[in-house]
Simulated scan of single mutants.
Amino acid sequence: MTGVSYLANIQWRVAALEPPHLAAINPWEEWSDTHREFAFHGGIPETWFWPYWTLQRLPVGLHLVEDLFTETQEHPLFDAFWASKAATLERIRIPAYVVASWTDHGLHTRGTLEGFKRIRSQQKWLEVHGEKKWAYYSRLESRLRQFAFFETFLKGRVTEGDEWPAVRAFIRAKGTTGEWRAFEAWPIPETRAYACFSTSNAGSSQSGNQVKS
């Protein structure tokens, strides 16, 4: 399976069912927890894209669809309803080529990175770029990497994928300029995380307390 956004989100859900004939997945920028990463970012209601998506995009079709907008009003906190909308990532064990982006943190970045961390695949690779998702997914370089991945796990052929680092990330210098770097794991070894909080002056403050992973 391969695809971007919703077409990637369903890969988490299907792979967690462990169907015997699903050989590999290529989730490309998606969310894995609808409550935390889509409808309520950090507990704060998403007031533009979520209403637009649930009221205008989902109802378009020939068949009945779930009334997610009303259900969101009825379930403002994470509960069993929202748990049913989150992928059971720990059940995924098949090979995965996971692609995230620094540019889509309002919807896809956390879910993709969290998905990569939590799946239990022994053969998994993470790529983090800094461009627009569909354009990057469709460019020739990306298509060749997708092809190499599926050639390996669908046909058993030796490809360039055998030499890929576990993590490949584009480290920005400014705008779209920067360099690709290879890492052995995610989170990147020696990464230090700090708690930050919103302030009344439209900025943020750092607590100075390092967050334990």
Results as ranks from 00 to 15, higher is better:
1 M>P: 09
1 M>N: 04
5 S>C: 10
5 S>L: 03
6 Y>M: 11
8 A>S: 15
8 A>T: 01
9 N>H: 12
9 N>A: 13
10 I>Q: 15
10 I>V: 15
13 R>I: 09
13 R>G: 07
16 A>S: 15
16 A>Y: 01
18 E>K: 14
19 P>K: 01
20 P>E: 12
22 L>P: 04
22 L>F: 07
24 A>R: 00
24 A>K: 01
25 I>C: 05
27 P>E: 00
28 W>I: 12
30 E>C: 13
31 W>C: 06
31 W>N: 08
32 S>N: 14
34 T>V: 14
34 T>H: 04
37 E>F: 05
40 F>E: 01
41 H>S: 10
43 G>A: 02
44 I>E: 13
45 P>T: 02
46 E>I: 01
46 E>Q: 15
48 W>S: 10
50 W>V: 13
52 Y>K: 09
54 T>H: 01
56 Q>K: 12
56 Q>C: 09
58 L>S: 04
59 P>K: 04
59 P>R: 03
59 P>I: 07
61 G>D: 00
61 G>Q: 07
61 G>F: 02
61 G>I: 00
61 G>C: 05
62 L>G: 06
67 D>V: 06
68 L>R: 14
68 L>A: 06
69 F>K: 01
70 T>R: 10
72 T>Y: 03
72 T>V: 01
74 E>M: 13
76 P>H: 00
77 L>C: 11
85 K>V: 02
85 K>C: 02
86 A>W: 00
88 T>D: 14
89 L>Y: 03
89 L>W: 03
90 E>F: 02
90 E>M: 02
91 R>H: 13
91 R>N: 15
92 I>W: 05
95 P>N: 01
95 P>M: 02
95 P>R: 00
95 P>E: 00
99 V>L: 03
100 A>D: 02
101 S>E: 02
103 T>D: 15
107 L>N: 10
107 L>H: 08
107 L>W: 07
107 L>V: 06
108 H>G: 06
109 T>Y: 06
109 T>W: 02
113 L>T: 03
114 E>N: 15
116 F>A: 05
121 S>L: 02
125 W>H: 12
125 W>T: 09
128 V>H: 07
130 G>R: 10
133 K>G: 13
135 A>Y: 07
138 S>R: 14
140 L>A: 14
140 L>Y: 07
141 E>D: 13
144 L>T: 05
144 L>Y: 10
145 R>S: 10
148 A>W: 08
150 F>Q: 00
150 F>L: 13
151 E>T: 05
151 E>Y: 01
152 T>Y: 00
154 L>K: 08
157 R>D: 11
158 V>N: 09
159 T>C: 09
160 E>N: 11
161 G>H: 13
166 A>E: 14
166 A>P: 11
166 A>G: 08
167 V>D: 04
168 R>W: 14
168 R>A: 07
169 A>L: 14
170 F>K: 05
172 R>N: 09
176 T>K: 12
176 T>S: 12
177 T>I: 11
183 F>G: 06
188 I>V: 15
189 P>R: 13
191 T>D: 10
193 A>M: 11
194 Y>L: 10
195 A>S: 11
196 C>G: 09
197 F>Y: 15
200 S>Q: 11
200 S>H: 08
202 A>Y: 13
205 S>R: 03
206 Q>A: 09
209 N>T: 10
210 Q>S: 04
210 Q>N: 04
211 V>W: 11
